[in-house]
């Protein structure tokens, strides 16, 4: 009995990885050209900024909030990076730090005033977009050389996006899941009363989590402009939904504290690959969004089935 229970738990944890593996096999069968370093690099490149945005979303979901502004925030950071980093690196870095500070303040505001995060972040999404459009009314700007070089790094043998994904996932997994302060941070979402009673400041932990979300949002923007080499205020509008879907696909849940960094990265990669797969299948664009949603629902249904099985 316990063996079965363990198995089901293991299965639930492995689900994101299994989903990704199935998708990869399907892609390789459909498009053998994809099974090369060049092919994998191409397909996975844009998964890196999505994975970073997904992790940003995961920090917010971990404290039982939801961030509807991450997409336009990433768009804003690309505009700042594209406009200032190549010519005035100091000013650019300062502005990016300000962005992170704004995220910290947003976390504090949500906690102190006990506001619904959905409303605050939805409002802020328009603010980010507005600033981005003011800074860069028409697409333009230029990626700093070092960023462009980093994102297009060629490592012999292994596609760079895979290395990046592993490093990112490992850092966050260790920091959030295997450190003592990580437990407190997750506890803020899972059991705030217990954390508060133990003497930890909830305000501080929320500010830390939102600060982390802002930092990963900035990283996502930087990696994105490193790939595109030019900025656009609307470049990442879809990231908001992608990031939420990625967290959930990767095993996270909307009940605070239950998140998985490795899963979130896998979820983000799955979403990016799902889009590629649908294009390879030549599914009409009108159906693609629906088909992407269907993949999401199938995975969630599988998870629900496994969880229900283990509860019995």
């Amino acid at each position: 009995m316990t063996a079965l229970l363990l198995n089901r738990d293991l299965l639930r944890r492995a689900l994101p990885a299994i989903t990704l593996a199935v998708l990869l096999v399907a892609i390789f069968i459909k498009q053998p050209l994809a099974m090369s370093q060049f092919g994998l690099t191409l397909m996975l490149q844009y998964a890196v900024p999505i994975a970073l945005a997904t992790l940003a979303q995961m920090f917010v979901i971990a404290v039982n909030d939801l961030d509807l502004s991450i997409g336009s925030f990433v768009g804003l950071t690309t505009c700042i990076a594209g406009l200032y980093l190549p010519t005035e690196p100091l000013l650019g870095a300062l502005l990016l730090l300000l962005c992170i500070a704004a995220y910290v303040a947003m976390g504090a505001l949500i906690h102190l005033r006990n506001l619904p995060s959905i409303v605050v972040t939805l409002g802020m999404s328009f603010v980010w977009l507005g600033i981005a459009v003011l800074l860069l009314p028409t697409p333009g700007g230029k990626a700093p050389e070092w960023l462009h070089g980093l994102m297009n790094l060629k490592v012999p043998g292994v596609p760079f996006p895979i290395i990046a994904a592993i490093v990112i996932a490992a850092v966050v997994q260790i920091g959030l899941m295997h450190s003592s302060y990580g437990v407190v941070l997750r506890g803020t979402g899972g059991n705030p009363k217990a954390v508060a009673r133990a003497g930890w400041s909830l305000l501080k932990t929320k500010m830390v989590m939102f600060g982390l979300a802002g930092s990963f949002g900035v990283l996502s923007g930087l990696s994105l402009i490193g790939l595109t080499s030019a900025a656009d205020a609307h470049i990442a509008d879809r990231y908001t939904l992608y990031s939420i879907a990625g967290v959930i696909l990767g095993g996270g849940e909307f009940i605070g504290g239950r998140v998985s960094p490795v899963g979130a990265v896998l979820g983000a990669i799955t979403l990016a690959l799902a889009a590629s797969f649908l294009i390879f299948l030549r599914i009409s664009p009108d159906w693609q969004i629906g088909a992407q949603g269907a993949i999401l629902i199938i995975v969630l249904a599988l998870r629900a089935a496994i969880t229900r099985g283990s509860a019995r």
């Binding site: 844009y46 595109t228 656009d232 590629s276």
Partner: peptide, 16 residues
């Protein structure tokens, strides 16, 4: 969307 079109073009590259 820019990112969507970028991904689309990458897939077109792969499709030869």
């Amino acid at each position: 969307q820019v990112t969507e079109q970028a991904a689309q073009i990458q897939n077109l590259i792969l499709q030869g």
